[in-house]
Nucleic acid binder design. Structure first.
Length: 504
RNA sequence: GGCGCAUUCGUCUAGUGGCUAGGACAUCAGGUUUUCAGCCUGAGAACAAGGGUUCGAUUCCCUUAUGCGCUACCA
């Protein structure tokens, strides 16, 4: 039975890298009809963030990742826990970790360390000065029984607790069999005597991950490359417990454009922020899946189902990948275009409300035809949903613009004014039926242009800019007819009149 | 400093002991067009360097360089 897990720390927002870790674990499990477990690693009490699990689950739900065991959201969006191997919150498993740490002490594979923070700090400084690798000097590793009793007493008086360190073997090698990187051999003597139980009674990552993965019967540990250096420590821990280690699969990091590890400093890394900016969850998943993985075919657009069907650990790359927003934009625009007008409209409404104002949008929400027509016009041009406000404001309120915007490049202000006057009279005479259908309007206006022997641009450019107040927008016919359909003929005449006045 | 991992167009990547080294994004040019976007057509753009092994290396080996990660009572 394949069992894999996603084990984040509840430190706030969901990092793009976490999304990919979760996604890979999820895809691997689903592809193999296995289970994915969500375990929360809250052993660092100093970094806890209220509501982080709740937020995490909401994000995962939006992108379509769910977990078979651990935490989930019920129908009321309340965080709940399920599964046989719980609790799935590490802070509720402290006895288990403590028991096993003591067991290692009995086995002679771990020891109490009484060194103070100051001593450790000085040690590190000393080592740095000598350009030696910073490592614990094993000061407490071979204390005699009486010494241990003495130190324990001293600590008690000073009001602090000792930590427990793992005794690394001082010779030999440890081999990690990684499903992606292959076999990696580490010299045991360079491995530090890692703290496994902290003085606050909480385990460190290394102890907790080994114990939990064992008791939760995890078959495959799937995580980022940053864990590669500590993997041999985990292998050794499994051996010390006489447990079989799960299979490991580390995958490469995601990098900033400057090749540093993807970080906040250089733009958004929070999945929530991407979602808020109008990247569709499916686009984000598609894009993130392709950072470090690809199907070895030329297919680039994948639904979650496609990904589940085709995902294969063997196809994960070894080299880190740079997060390229251009490609995300492209994928997102494809997913936007794939939406129906109605779906897209529903997605856009919050963005309109934010950019234009809730009460301006409200009248159109009941009868969505107008909004759908606008969405349809912008569908091919949108890279992300948040662009909609600026691009379509003129559909809701009269545009402001400078008079010379109205003048086509091959024309003059005087000529433009004359033509707009004629256009005004012409449009004024048209019935709504002609105005409201793009095809009719186009036919009519082209005819009008032909009969007057105008250049297309000399009439269509000022018409379009008078309607939109923008140098870039959809075409004059669709803009005008859509405007008539939503705001009426009077509105376009008003805008035309305003344009004529500007040119006075 | 130590240990580990990595290296094909700017970016994501495909690929093979012998290929014009393929695709996509981005860029640029042309076309369509009132504008922008879109769409169509086209262009430029890569095997990090040096040694081997070999009839032949982008591919296999070694070295170097570069980048990244780890080196906490953080995960």
């Amino acid at each position: 039975m394949i069992r894999t897990r996603f084990a984040p720390s509840p430190t706030g927002y969901v990092h793009i890298g976490s999304l990919r870790t979760a996604l890979f674990a999820f895809l691997f499990a689903r592809h193999n009809n296995g289970k994915v477990i969500l375990r929360v690693e809250d052993t660092d009490r100093t970094r806890l963030v209220e509501g982080a699990v709740d937020n995490l689950l909401k994000v995962m739900k939006r992108v379509g990742i769910n977990f078979d065991e651990g935490f989930y959201l019920d129908n009321q969006n309340q965080v709940k826990e399920r599964g046989e191997a719980g609790p799935y919150l590490q802070s509720q498993r402290l006895q288990l970790y403590q028991k096993h740490a003591l067991e290692l002490i009995e086995k002679g594979r771990a020891y109490y360390c009484f060194c103070s923070e100051q001593r450790l700090e000085e040690l590190r400084k000393e080592q740095a000065a000598l350009k030696k690798p910073p490592m614990y000097d094993r000061h407490c590793r071979n204390l005699a029984k009486e010494q241990i009793a003495e130190e324990t007493e001293r600590c008690r008086k000073e009001g602090r607790n000792p930590v427990i360190r793992f005794s690394m073997p001082q010779e030999g090698q440890t081999v990690l069999h990684d499903l992606i990187y292959g076999d990696i051999t580490y010299e045991n003597k360079i491995l530090d005597d890692q703290v496994i139980l902290k003085s606050d009674g909480f385990p460190t990552y290394h102890l907790a991950v080994v114990i939990d993965d064992h008791y939760m019967q995890i078959s495959h540990v799937i995580r980022g490359e940053e864990w590669l250096p500590s993997a041999p420590k985990h292998v050794l821990l499994y051996q010390a417990f006489d447990w079989n280690a799960p299979a490991h699969a580390h995958f490469p990091l995601i990098l900033n454009p400057d090749k540093s590890k993807l970080s906040k400093r250089q733009g958004d890394v929070a999945v929530e922020d991407f979602l808020a900016r109008g990247y569709l969850p499916e686009a984000l998943v598609n894009f993130v899946a392709f950072l470090g993985w690809n199907p070895k075919t030329e297919q680039e657009i994948f639904s979650m189902e496609d990904l589940i069907k085709q995902f294969d650990l063997a196809k994960i790359n070894k080299a880190a990948a740079i997060f390229d927003i251009n490609k995300l934009d492209w994928i997102n625009s494809l997913y936007i275009r794939a939406k129906s007008d109605s779906e897209l409209t529903d997605l856009l409404i919050p963005y309109w409300e934010e950019a234009i104002g809730t009460h301006t949008i409200r009248p159109f929400k009941d009868n969505k035809e107008y909004l759908e027509a606008i969405a349809s016009l912008e569908k091919d041009r949108l890279k992300k949903l948040s662009e909609i406000g600026e691009r379509t404001r003129y559909f809701f309120m009269e545009p402001e613009y400078a008079p010379n915007l109205l003048v086509w490049k091959k024309s003059t202000a005087r000529e433009t004014k004359e033509k707009l006057l004629k256009l005004y009279d012409h449009l004024n005479k048209l019935d709504t039926n002609t105005l409201i259908y793009k095809e009719n309007l186009e036919k009519d206006l082209k005819n009008f242009i032909l009969q007057n022997q105008f250049d297309n641009g000399s009439i269509l450019w000022p018409l379009r800019t008078a309607m939109t107040g923008l140098d870039k927008s959809p075409g004059p016919f669709e803009v005008t007819s859509t405007l008539v359909s939503g705001l009426g003929k009077g509105e376009i005449l008003k805008r035309l009149q305003k344009a004529i006045n500007k040119l006075a």
